[in-house]
Amino acid sequence: MTHSISASQKQKGFTGTQVLLMMLAAVVITAGVSFLVIRTYIFPQPFSPVTLNDKETQKLDKKLQQLGWQSDSGVRRQAGSANDLTPEPYRESDANRQVTLSEKEVNSIIARSPDFAQRVAIDFSDNLASAKILIPIPRDFPIMAGEILRVNAGLDIHLDKNRRPVVALVGVSLMGVPIPNAWLGNMKNVNLVSEFGDRGFWNTFADGVDDIQIHDGELYIKLRK
């Protein structure tokens, strides 16, 4: 009887080989997770700049011209046109005040700047514009000198009941860790337009926007007359 119980207890336990394999598996998993965290948050790789094909570029340049922004590629195309400086009467239309930019188009605009091409990426979801930013740490900084810091931020953008733009900071995270509101000057969920709308950029921005909407992968803007 005693022999039978002893044999049963041995069958329920793990053998030395099984314990060793589980320890090795735990070490491998821990190392893999650590490597992923380090590569993603502590030493992130530069972003891949978004590029457009010729047809997409021409479509984007036309939208930018509606906003008064003449891109280099648009200038080159017009320079080769015989009608570049043909006189024509000035016209305004509601269609020219409405611009819809896709997430891809916005990121391609960012990619045109050498300073931001591999450091900033924008995402659009319902009423939310999110940004991933890679910030280089100065080499004379006492901590992580010369490394890259990953910052995530979100802005809530919509119209209020009075049809005035609302731009509010949803939050900021540093290397995946959310920053406390107190460290952000208690600016989370504060409408920047109403907070600073009596002067400067935000007032001008609000006065010039008739409608603004952000949906999944898309930004829509309608300018006032």
Rank of each mutant, 00 (worst) to 15 (best):
N152M: 13
L101W: 03
A117V: 04
T100P: 15
D115N: 10
S173D: 10
L169Y: 15
F124A: 01
K62A: 09
A129D: 06
F116P: 07
E105T: 02
S108A: 15
K104Y: 02
R97E: 05
Q78D: 12
S108I: 11
L134T: 01
A153F: 09
Q118A: 15
I143K: 12
M175H: 04
L134D: 07
Q58L: 07
V166E: 02
A145C: 00
G171N: 09
S71Y: 04
R76N: 00
K59C: 08
R164L: 11
D54R: 00
D84T: 06
K62F: 08
E92G: 08
S113T: 10
R97H: 09
D61W: 01
D140P: 07
N152P: 04
A95L: 09
R139C: 03
P138F: 03
P136W: 00
R164E: 14
N96A: 06
Q58S: 14
I157F: 05
Q66E: 01
G176I: 02
F124C: 06
D140N: 11
N83Q: 08
N152G: 13
L169H: 12
D160W: 03
K55W: 03
R97C: 08
R150E: 12
K104F: 06
K55Q: 12
L52D: 02
D123A: 06
E147H: 07
D115C: 10
N83Y: 02
I143H: 12
L149W: 01
Q78M: 11
D54C: 05
E56K: 10
R163W: 12
R112M: 15
A111S: 04
G80I: 06
I157R: 10
I137H: 00
Y90F: 14
V170D: 09
G176E: 03
D61V: 00
S125M: 04
K161Q: 15
F141M: 08
S108W: 15
G171T: 07
L159P: 06
A168I: 03
S130N: 14
T86N: 05
D61N: 01
D126Y: 12
A182D: 13
A79M: 07
I135F: 04
P89Y: 00
L67I: 03
K62E: 13
P138Q: 03
F141G: 10
K104T: 14
I179L: 15
A121H: 07
L155S: 05
G80E: 09
K63D: 06
D72R: 13
D115P: 03
R97A: 00
G74P: 03
H158R: 06
I148P: 08
G154I: 06
Q65N: 08
S93I: 08
I133D: 15
G171E: 11
G176L: 06
M144H: 14
V167N: 12
L169P: 05
R76S: 10
V151R: 11
R119P: 09
Q98W: 10
L149Q: 02
H158G: 08
R119E: 13
L64I: 01
K55Y: 01
A117Y: 00
D72I: 00
L128Y: 06
R76G: 01
N96E: 15
A117T: 06
G154P: 13
H158N: 09
D61Y: 01
H158L: 13
R119S: 04
R76M: 07
V75H: 15
L169M: 13
P136D: 02
R119A: 04
D61A: 02
S73C: 01
